[in-house]
């Protein structure tokens, strides 16, 4: 999971992947990207931590400390969620399918 992803939203200048853990991913529906979805980062107790709106290409990004997280997406075409484990500094990718 730590390997470079095939595609991500560009990271902000100054992001240090040797110190920070960055979680990036895409919201998809039947393989197509879903833009404008509300993407929520929930901690392992299910508590809300942050929310972003996915880009036109379905991308989202969080700065999450190591741990187990749930990424939950709400969209007009449905909702979905997935779990991701962030092991340490670096880039972590996942995908949320909504239906």
């Amino acid at each position: 999971m730590c390997s470079a992803p095939e595609q991500t939203a560009e990271l902000p200048a100054g992001t240090d992947l040797t110190k920070e853990s960055v979680l990036v991913g895409k919201v998809t529906n039947g393989g197509s990207p879903v833009g404008g979805a509300f993407v929520r980062l929930l901690d392992r107790t299910g508590e809300f931590t942050a929310e972003v709106v996915s880009s036109a290409s379905g991308d989202y990004r969080f700065f999450a400390r190591p741990g187990t997280w749930t990424v939950r997406a709400l969209s007009r075409s449905g909702n979905g969620q997935t779990e991701v484990s962030v092991g340490g500094p670096g880039l972590f990718t996942n995908e949320v399918q909504v239906a």
Binding site: T15, T49, A50, F62
Partner: peptide
């Protein structure tokens, strides 16, 4: 900072 913002 919140987890969707850079931690600068």
């Amino acid at each position: 900072a919140p987890a969707h913002l850079p931690q600068e």
